[in-house]
């Protein structure tokens, strides 16, 4: 047997981790550093006049009520995306777990939406909900309800939440069903013999055992709602009507790429980075304590 290290060459470990390090440096550290630097500048679009302004961009943002509106919109949106996405996935996973005949078939069908690109998912829902050509507004008009998410902010939010949830719930589903299948049958059977009804068995045995999975998914879903729903919003509401679906990440895009206000846009992405880091730390610090592993 070997009694020495597997790596004979001193440089080999560094070579092996190099690709990952380079990717992190090039695609994360370097752009993040650029954003941080830009966030201290007020600059015209072409870069002819640059002024170093310290924290002025941040002060401007934080004193702008629109930015706080965007924070509120993002909070509400993330809550619903995470909550509905996870609740729906858990419900379907619990049901799919019970199916004996053809379980693979149902599971495959439920996983499919994850293979759809976010922008495609958004366009599908946009078509279904389009006030002029959509099927759902047509049905709703039959029962006397006029759907127009272009003018109604609640409806716009419902649309982006549905599209985002539909896209993400498959991912949650995979993890929940794997978690469910990992729960020893003997525990559930023992509870059943003791006379626990299915509802009680779920909440007192299955759910606590699933909590590590649920906790992990909570982090992933919040990050998803913060960052990856850009395509959904861009393809459906573009942040409207009013500011009602303009999340933080959408505002970064709008101010930076359409408005060409690079200083403000960079400051926003730095704040976004801070918010997500804080959220993750808080989740791991406090929520994790309540999770039973």
């Amino acid at each position: 047997m070997h009694d020495k290290s597997v790596f004979q060459h001193r440089l080999l470990p560094y070579v092996l981790v190099a690709p990952q390090l380079i990717i992190t440096l090039v695609f994360f550290i370097w752009p993040a550093g650029q954003a941080l630097y830009q966030s201290f500048l007020v600059e015209d679009a072409f870069g002819f006049s640059t002024e170093f302004v310290w924290f002025e961009n941040f002060i401007y943002l934080l004193s702008d009520p629109e930015y706080w509106t965007s924070i509120r919109v993002t909070a509400v949106f993330s809550f619903w995306v995470a909550f509905v996405g996870m609740a729906l996935a858990l419900l379907l996973a619990a049901m799919a777990d019970k199916v004996i005949r053809g379980s693979r078939f149902y599971q495959t069908l439920l996983i499919w939406p994850y293979a759809v690109a976010p922008v495609v998912a958004a366009v599908l829902w946009l078509m279904l909900f389009s006030p002029s050509i959509g099927l759902l507004p047509f049905w709703l008009s039959k029962v006397g309800y006029q759907w127009n998410h272009l003018a109604n902010s609640v409806e716009a939010n419902i649309l982006v939440i549905i599209a985002s949830v539909w896209k993400q719930f498959s991912y949650n589903f995979i993890f929940f069903i794997a978690g469910l299948q990992a729960i020893p049958r003997s525990l559930i059977e023992a509870a059943a013999i003791d006379g626990a009804r299915p509802f009680r068995r779920f909440w007192q045995i299955v759910f606590p055992l699933l909590s590590p999975t649920a906790f992990f998914l909570l982090v992933v879903n919040v990050v998803y709602a913060f960052f990856e729903t850009f395509a959904v919003i861009h393809a459906t509401t573009q942040g409207g009507p009013g500011n009602s679906t303009k999340t933080l990440v959408y505002k970064v895009f709008e101010d930076g790429f359409i408005g060409l206000d690079l200083g403000s846009s960079s400051a926003q992405s730095v704040l976004l980075m801070v918010i997500v880091i804080t959220l993750t730390v808080v989740q791991f610090r406090y929520v994790e304590k309540k999770v039973q592993y």
């Binding site: 109604n152 902010s153 409207g240 009507p241 009013g242 500011n243 408005g259 060409l260």
Partner: peptide, 21 residues
């Protein structure tokens, strides 16, 4: 200057009028 942002601001304002806010 910053006309794209101003158009956006106006769009938001008008939408808030149309939906009665």
């Amino acid at each position: 200057g910053n006309f794209p942002q101003i158009r956006g601001i106006i769009d938001e304002a008008l939408e808030s009028v149309w939906n009665g806010d």
